[in-house]
Design a protein around this nucleic acid. Structure first.
Lengths: 153, 153
DNA sequence: TATATTTAAGACAAAATACTCCTATATATT
DNA sequence: AATATATAGGAGTATTTTGTCTTAAATATA
């Protein structure tokens, strides 16, 4: 709940990409290895990001994917929208077809407020913010243990 | 995404229950009819709420379900937790097993903040709040059209 | 006690999501 | 031109979630 696995993979991959050299294409194989996600599945997920122009791809030798624009211009919400579609977050919580401002369902008002907060948070959080955070955390934590935070366990 | 269908059904049913006479058992059939949700599926969903003591149930004639405690003491989050489990919202967004304060993943910090906000909103919103809202909305809207907001379309 | 009513629980079917693999397409290099 | 490398897209399989149905258990009433 909250985020689908595809969303999570997309976010992780995008943050990882943003932490690497810009302008260079990185192979999906490299990303899937570092993230410990199935290459095949990650490929499908990243294809969606490419179609939505969050990423650029290049076929053939030295090909791969790279960010479609600066990491500061890609929001958490951009990624979620690209993967799960725009309507997911905008639909009435009760799934009532006619629900809206004119004919609200019982929870419309309260849920709208909650949604606005969630979406606001997702919109204000960019991939760049997440990378920055990651680097700080890696640096701090390198003092204690030597894990790579892109890798599980 | 965000909320599973089971969660949504549980919320709708609980709000509807709270809007009815307390202390009386309401049959799941009546709820499923009013909410236009499959009786069988709603039964499964409400059984979870009963197990978590958000509802009480009674078998046999004049039986049914009713709130396990005052609607003001049942939060949005209580319902979500009963249906989808407590861990769903508490897990690391990246699904990394070791992620935590001591060994945060790249998004741990940012995501924690977002989660805290979402959970805070869900915790501060009670079923009673949602019923109140519903009644206000029904009253306002009755002036314009005569829909019942528990029923789709 | 017999019958009707109602939730509980388990087994199953359908749909959605997650995941795999194969072939096509693009392109760099020899 | 031939070959190797890489993403794109389609066609599957597996798993999870959603939805259905049947039988069991509890209880009120006649």
């Amino acid at each position: 709940m909250l985020l689908s696995k595809s969303c999570i993979y997309a976010l992780r991959a995008t943050v990882l990409l943003a932490s690497k050299k810009q302008d260079e294409f990185i192979t999906i194989r490299e990303l899937s290895d570092e993230l410990d996600i199935s290459f095949y599945f990650l490929t499908k997920v990243l294809q969606k990001l490419t179609r939505h122009e969050l990423l650029e791809s290049y076929k053939g030798p030295n090909g791969g994917v790279r960010l479609g624009r600066s990491s500061g211009l890609i929001t958490f919400l951009d990624v979620v929208h690209s993967i799960d579609g725009e309507k997911q977050l905008e639909d009435c919580i009760l799934g009532l077809p006619g629900c809206g401002v004119m004919k609200p369902c019982p929870m419309h008002d309260q849920w709208s407020q909650l949604k606005v907060r969630i979406m606001g948070s997702m919109k204000s959080m960019t991939i760049s913010d997440l990378v920055t955070n990651k680097e700080i955390m890696n640096r701090i934590s390198a003092l204690e243990n030597d894990g790579n935070f892109f890798e599980p366990k």
